[in-house]
Simulated scan of single mutants.
Amino acid sequence: MYVRTIYATGDPAELDGVVEALSTEGRRLLSEQAGYRGMGLFVDRELGKLVAGTWWEDEKAEQASDDRLRERRAELLAPFARTVAVDKWEAAVARRPAALGSGAWFRLLRLEFEPSDADLLVDTFEKTGLPKLETIRGFEGASLLIDRAKGRATVGALWTDRNTLVASRAAVAGIRGEATAKARVITRSLEEFEVVFVAPVSPA
Results as ranks from 00 to 15, higher is better:
D66N: 15
D66C: 10
D66Y: 13
D66F: 14
D67N: 13
R68F: 08
E71M: 05
E71D: 15
R72W: 12
R72Y: 09
R73L: 15
R73I: 14
A74H: 11
A74T: 00
A74S: 14
A74P: 03
E75D: 15
E75M: 12
L77Y: 09
L77V: 05
L77R: 09
A78T: 01
A78S: 13
F80L: 08
F80K: 04
A81V: 01
R82E: 13
T83W: 06
T83E: 14
T83K: 10
T83F: 02
V86Y: 07
V86R: 12
V86K: 10
D87A: 15
D87T: 14
D87S: 14
D87N: 15
V93Q: 02
V93T: 08
A94R: 12
R95W: 06
R96D: 12
A98G: 05
A99I: 01
A99G: 01
A99K: 11
L100V: 05
L100P: 00
G101T: 10
G101P: 01
A104G: 11
A104F: 04
A104D: 00
W105S: 07
W105T: 06
F106Y: 14
F106G: 03
R107P: 03
R107S: 06
L108M: 08
L108W: 06
L108Y: 09
L108F: 05
L109F: 08
L109Q: 11
R110C: 04
R110E: 09
E112F: 01
E112H: 09
F113D: 00
F113P: 01
F113K: 02
E114G: 03
P115L: 11
S116E: 14
D117R: 03
D117F: 04
D119Y: 05
L120P: 01
L120V: 10
V122D: 10
D123Y: 08
D123Q: 15
T124E: 08
T124V: 07
F125N: 11
E126S: 10
E126A: 13
G129H: 04
G129Q: 09
L130I: 00
P131W: 09
K132Q: 14
K132E: 15
L133P: 03
E134Y: 03
I136C: 00
G138V: 06
G138D: 08
G138C: 07
G138A: 13
F139D: 01
F139W: 15
E140S: 04
A142N: 04
A142F: 06
S143E: 11
L144P: 01
L145E: 00
L145R: 08
L145Q: 07
I146P: 04
D147C: 02
D147P: 04
D147H: 12
D147W: 02
R148Y: 06
A149S: 13
A149K: 13
K150F: 10
K150Q: 15
K150M: 14
G151Y: 09
G151L: 08
G151W: 09
R152E: 03
R152Q: 07
A153T: 02
A153E: 07
V155S: 05
G156D: 01
G156F: 07
A157C: 02
A157P: 05
A157K: 07
